[in-house]
Design a protein around this nucleic acid. Structure first.
Lengths: 395, 395
DNA sequence: ATTCTTTGTTTATCCTATAAACTAAGTTTA
DNA sequence: TAAACTTAGTTTATAGGATAAACAAAGAAT
């Protein structure tokens, strides 16, 4: 039983092929000669790898480039249409599905609203959305390479949904269900992890090695990216920063803990506070929209609540920065719609509470992918996996 | 300018040599044949690597093993005396230095107390300790391979001490000073990072991939180990979990934040509380020892304070577990002396506040290296670096 | 038109892992 | 006790891949 990856000729080849491929993906269009110069690989090696990659449809020759005093270079380019990926944002009352190319560009999009979160009902809609997207996928060498689904709950290392409180699901093996139905590799992960992955690859966190994505919706979830990789903890359920205590003897949270951050800084916290202040009628269906409208009209009570929300968000962000010393913190999900009104109190708290060193070394950003954050993130899992299967790196 | 590590024959050789070396270090004594079977490397390859490693003094033939029905195997063993490492625990009022072999065994030890934390004075004692340890190092193929120093303060990516509040140091380039003096590679890091690294290699966290080391002394520092590596954040100053807010509108901390964990759960918090309750006279020199004595005699006031301390420690530990989902949390530094009295309230809080899943997947341990934790940890930096320079791994 | 540059391919060589053959040295069996 | 069998470790011939150097292709400069 050979478990360790030992070194042989094959490994060397894979590694160098990865180097060439990565270079073209990130720096392309680029010539063979340039790749050789920049990577240190011999021209002959680059040529061999390039022709194999062309054969595999991962790259193609886009045409001739400008001469710099000699023969014109042939430019190589990443083939973002070698395959397509499906990403699903499975919300509490909606499903948002996207079909993306290998660069994370959205090709097709499909939305459904859910009025019942019972498993069978959701699975029905889910498979319908996926089926439709599969059908819409253009013909390509590798077809639909994978399906990714971001869910509002805890997912363990084996992609099993342990607990999704707002869907009222427990122990659901969604991966198995989808794979049995479509026979396409499927990845299930927490919505915050999906968002983090997506923002890092294609959004507000491009090329950031250490970033924390904070998804503030009904609750607060976080995706932790460390050294360019999603950190999922020893059992796959890290990043429950929404359940970090910020009031030691605060009120009990359904999670078991007390004084959790999300009790003070989430959409739910905002809505509850607004109702208590009679700024909103109870269980208003479109509470958020209503509050935005009021804020735009300058309702002082609402503005005060938003200010308070921002301050509490800030307190949690200070904790995140002190804990992780990340380069960037990205704030995403529905709360990002209030950016205009919460950015000031957030900045104020950071200004007041962070050490000078952290202040000048951390940036707070808002999601760039917006409402597609989770769906693109979910799609990006399959893209990364697909491309990484062809990749090796050395430490 | 070749910056990327490309694949070639040399890489393959290094990688396989690493595999053989690692195997012998962790599973030795072991025969060439066994290594071949377990790693999947060809017998011939193992033989070649073994003879080179013997030549380099990294391993040696320890003698013949038991026959299993054929020729007796020749057992190979890790040479932990190929070199020695110096580790220093630079405390606020003491210096503890150790000389360790390549397995982290303490060969020599030296302590000094400091009555003045002025830079010049400390440097004087520090160099004296190092010089003495260098002299005591046995003759070996690689001599003293490095010096590691754990300091009570923030250290950036370039080993510069940014701020050590209790020493009242700012912007000290200790690495430069020591290297200029001894011409031995030197590594400076935060004491909690040193402790974390040490406990993972040789203490309570052996073979744990994800662990958090919580050093509770005057303040609280933490060392974060993720995927077997120390995580130091984007600028080298992560793990300030002592400054995570657990009381959103708590009192101001010198760090700038409010309601920081260490204001409630550190040695200083304990001493202050004890003084306020008149359980201890003000600025008692041996406050901790005094409290331990009182606790042993069953002083109810002291026991109550310790209980409270344990609960606050527990609250922070819940935050850590929710944030990182680590396999193990190790509690170290002086507070570990109170283990007996704080373990119950800690467990109680965890029992009450953690989710069932986390409860059954996380273990709280106390430091195994005890007072040598930081010094051995500091020494282990050089050992890891020395051995890893000879190592390559593939992802 | 000739010379110089740059791009990309071909070729001979070197390095390393490997399988297979081989030597060494033990145990088991009859 | 000798023959057969096992296991350990080394030697040898071979294969795969990177590389430098030579070469071919194609353009720019003079």
């Amino acid at each position: 039983m050979k478990t360790i990856r030992t070194g042989d000729q094959n490994l060397v080849k894979q590694l160098n092929k990865s180097i060439v491929f990565n270079f073209i993906e990130h720096k392309g269009p680029v010539s063979r000669a340039q790749i050789s110069k920049d990577t240190g690989l011999n021209k002959a090696t680059v040529s061999t790898m390039a022709s194999e990659l062309i054969n595999d449809s991962f790259i193609y020759e886009i045409g001739e480039g400008q001469s710099s005093g000699g023969r014109k270079p042939v430019m190589l380019y990443f083939n973002n249409h070698a395959g397509y990926s499906i990403g699903i944002d499975l919300g509490v009352n909606y499903i948002l599905g996207v079909l993306s190319d290998l660069r994370g560009n959205i090709i097709e999009e499909e939305t459904r609203s859910l009025n019942d979160s019972k498993l069978d009902n959701v699975i029905g809609h889910l498979t319908a959305v996926i089926e439709s997207l599969v059908k819409k996928a253009p013909v390509s060498p590798y077809g639909v390479i994978g399906i990714g689904i971001g869910v509002p709950g805890n997912v363990d290392k084996d992609d099993k949904i342990l607990f999704a409180p707002n869907l009222n699901w427990k122990q659901v093996d969604l991966k198995q269900i989808i794979e049995n139905r479509f026979h396409i590799p499927t990845k299930i992960d927490n919505e915050a992890n999906a968002g983090a992955h997506g923002e890092r690859l294609y959004g507000a966190g491009k090329n950031i090695a250490n970033l924390i994505y904070v998804s503030i919706g009904i609750g607060i979830g976080t995706g932790i990216i460390i050294n360019n990789n999603l950190y999922t903890g020893s059992s796959g359920i890290s990043g429950e920063l929404g359940h970090v205590t910020i009031e030691a003897s605060g009120r009990k949270c359904p999670c078991g803990n007390r004084g959790c951050w999300e009790l003070y800084a989430s959409e739910k916290a905002l809505l509850t506070a607004a109702e208590e202040q009679h700024l909103l009628e109870k269980d208003h269906a479109e509470g958020l929209d209503c509050l935005i409208k009021e804020a735009q009209m300058g309702n002082p009570g609402v503005l005060q609540q938003l200010n308070r929300l921002g301050e509490y968000i800030g307190i949690g962000l200070v904790n995140i920065v002190n804990t992780f010393n990340p380069e960037v913190v990205v704030i995403g999900n529905r709360i990002a719609r209030f950016k205009h009104w919460i950015i000031n109190p957030i900045t104020h708290i950071l200004e007041e509470r962070l050490s000078p060193y952290h202040k000048s070394n951390t940036e707070i950003r808002f999601s760039e992918l917006g409402k597609h954050s989770i769906a693109i993130g979910a799609a990006s899992f399959s893209i990364s996996k697909f491309l990484e299967d062809k990749r090796v790196s050395v430490q």
